[in-house]
Design a protein around this nucleic acid. Structure first.
Length: 258
DNA sequence: ATGGCTTGAGTGTCAAGA
């Protein structure tokens, strides 16, 4: 079973890339972030024609998350329960007995800003939610755009980024709190080459110079980590015309028949 | 260089991303 996440930076612009990528990879589940659209214009029909069921939690202009799956989506939940938030950043659904929690975590703008404090409050609330979800669904995947580079090796220039937003200690501590719930960073379950990233700035040839950050992640609960056979970041879509600034991350799980 | 691209909104030019 292949499960993936991709911040598409506008699904309206990127739908052709998404459809091509699904046809190529045959992923079973794809979680999207930054759809930047209301539900009434979400391309359900095009995705269904491609063989995918979909659930969407969207809004105009900003944010918006979706889960696409070859199988049925069950127990769909929107947002973080009990956390008052106008921003559409979380969507959860069960596929083939596996709980998927798709998250577009806040950017935080700058260390010390109001948005940074919102990010940390938001991350704490998500942690509480995931703890509850794990009790009901031991087979859980928390995946999406975390907007956190967990370690210096996930940063092209750790000196320049030191203590900056996406790399600050408080954000990295929040990331480790997900690991403390028993989740594992699928990418780090395997030997990986150096300088692998999932996001590159559009400006100043960031991608060509590989000036990137690894901020998109797939975290697996213990039974799924044991079943994980691989994790990779697919740079191919980042090379296309009008690409998203993020690349998809994909895991392969060896799952037992349901 | 509070910059450098890209998107959405909306038709001016700005907010937001990371």
């Amino acid at each position: 079973m292949k499960i993936a996440t991709w911040n598409v930076n506008s699904l309206k612009v990127r739908l052709p890339h998404v459809l091509d990528w699904l046809a190529t990879t045959r992923a079973d589940v794809l979680c999207l972030q930054e759809t930047k659209m209301e539900d009434k214009v979400f391309p359900y029909a095009e995705l269904e024609a491609a063989g995918y069921c979909a659930a969407h939690n969207g809004q105009k202009t900003y944010n918006g998350v979706a889960i696409l799956a070859r199988g049925a989506l069950e127990d769909i939940r929107f947002d973080i329960p009990g956390f008052v938030d106008q921003q559409k950043r979380v969507l959860a659904a069960t596929v083939n007995g596996l709980r998927m929690v798709c998250a577009y975590m806040p950017n935080g703008q700058a260390v010390g800003s109001d948005k940074y404090e919102y990010k940390l409050r938001w991350l704490a609330a998500l942690g509480d939610f995931i703890r509850e979800e794990l009790q009901r669904w031991p087979q859980l995947v928390l995946l999406g755009d975390y907007n956190i580079a967990p370690e210096d090796r996930d940063v092209h220039d750790p000196v320049a980024w030191k203590d900056q937003v996406l790399c600050s200690e408080r954000e990295r501590t929040a990331f480790r709190q997900f690991l403390d719930l028993g989740l594992a960073d699928a990418f780090r379950l395997f030997d990986q080459p150096e300088k692998i990233y999932s996001w590159w700035d559009y400006r100043q040839m960031g991608f060509r110079l590989n000036r990137g950050l690894r901020i998109d992640h797939i975290l697996l609960s213990k039974p799924l980590a044991a079943a994980c056979r691989g994790c990779a970041i697919d740079k191919a879509p980042r090379k296309l015309e009008r690409p998203s600034d993020h690349a998809p991350v994909i895991v392969t799980l060896e799952t037992e028949p349901a």
